[in-house]
């Protein structure tokens, strides 16, 4: 058990290191242009260029540059944005994090509940028109660009049908902290939650349905039926419980990706000042240090979430618990 745990920690560290190297290479060693110019931003003065070159060690060999970069990101945390009035990057990200957290958590709750309901219902009624309709809905869900869906949602709730009883409560784009006014926080986020959840509902209901349908062929499901259990009990206790293993592992990864900035497009469309929108603003200014920092942090999130998922796996699957 302990050795397995240590091995897992070791693996995590290797992957983290790999990611940092990958991100570093993407930003500093992609053939094309001088990284100094990229960091310094548009129309930088020669003095700024010189300062950047020295600060990041672009006149030194690559490993040194890498070390400098990592120090700036994780130890001194003084990565500075040149394009954006010299603001420090890390505090900005920390400030934006609660917004993203609010958005992603709410959305995850919705997609969890709806996708489990849809996937289970479709599997239970396999082959019926209910099943076909749910499959189609799921497909439509994964076929819509989220930023476009956001625009359409805005159009409906803020303009076309804003005066009807259904949408009159919808506030304009923006964010209200939970600590300030919970109700306003909720109102501001309901529509973004749903829009962000749509694609994941599609993905997860499809995965769950496929998994449950495949499980129905398993011997143990036949045993459960031979025991005289009710179909609902078989589906939930034997089917869903077994499927939960796959579901949770995927869920953890997607959740982490969203927290790490994957919700960028949703945040942009709804004007939510989260990590994603920070990245977006950095994009429009070609503010490289900020983008690099967000990518690095999000990748870190994903790797850590991976480790958490593995632990959940151990709790969910007795076979893994015994090291197989």
């Amino acid at each position: 058990m302990l050795s397995a745990f240590l091995r897992r920690v070791g693996q995590t560290l290797i992957v983290l290191f790999g990611i940092s190297v990958l991100v570093f290479l993407v930003f500093f060693a992609t053939p094309g242009a001088d990284p100094t110019a990229r960091i310094a931003g548009r129309n930088a003065s020669p003095q700024t260029m010189e300062k950047v070159r020295h600060e990041y060690g672009f006149d030194r060999p690559l490993p040194f540059q890498y070390a400098t970069m990592m120090k700036k990101l994780f130890i001194t945390r003084d990565l500075t944005s040149y394009a954006n009035r010299g603001e420090q990057v890390v505090p900005e990200i920390i400030q934006a994090a609660p917004v993203t957290l609010s958005l992603v958590c709410g959305s995850a709750v919705i997609w969890l509940i709806v996708s489990v309901a849809m996937g289970t219902l479709a599997a239970a009624m396999k082959g019926s028109w209910v099943d076909r309709t749910l499959i189609m809905l799921g497909l439509v869900g994964i076929s819509m660009p989220v930023f476009w869906l956001g625009q359409v949602a805005n159009l409906i709730s803020l303009s076309r049908y804003h005066d009807t009883w259904l949408f009159s409560w919808v506030p304009g784009p923006g964010y209200v902290p939970l600590t300030q006014n919970p109700l306003a926080w909720f109102k501001a986020l309901v529509i973004p939650w749903c829009v962000l959840a749509v694609m994941f509902i599609g993905i997860y209901s499809r995965i769950l349905r496929a998994d449950l349908v495949a499980l129905a062929q398993e011997d143990f499901m036949r045993t459960a039926r031979a025991k005289g259990l009710s179909p609902a009990r078989i589906l939930v206790f034997h089917g869903l419980r077994t499927s939960a293993i796959t579901y949770v592992s995927l869920f953890g990864l997607d959740f982490a990706q969203l927290l790490g900035g994957g919700a960028l497009l949703t945040e942009v469309v709804f004007g939510l000042p989260g990590v994603g929108r920070l990245t977006y603003q950095a994009l429009t200014n070609l503010d490289l240090p900020l983008i690099m920092a967000t990518v690095m942090y999000s990748a870190t999130f994903v790797v850590l979430a991976n480790a958490v998922v593995d632990i959940l796996y151990i709790l969910l699957d007795p076979r893994v618990r015994d090291g197989r």
Binding site: V26, L264, L265, L286, L288, I291
Partner: peptide
């Protein structure tokens, strides 16, 4: 491990 869109955005920028 890098979110797909963020990865694509990094390369694009």
């Amino acid at each position: 491990a890098v979110p797909v869109y963020l990865f694509a955005i990094s390369l694009s920028i």
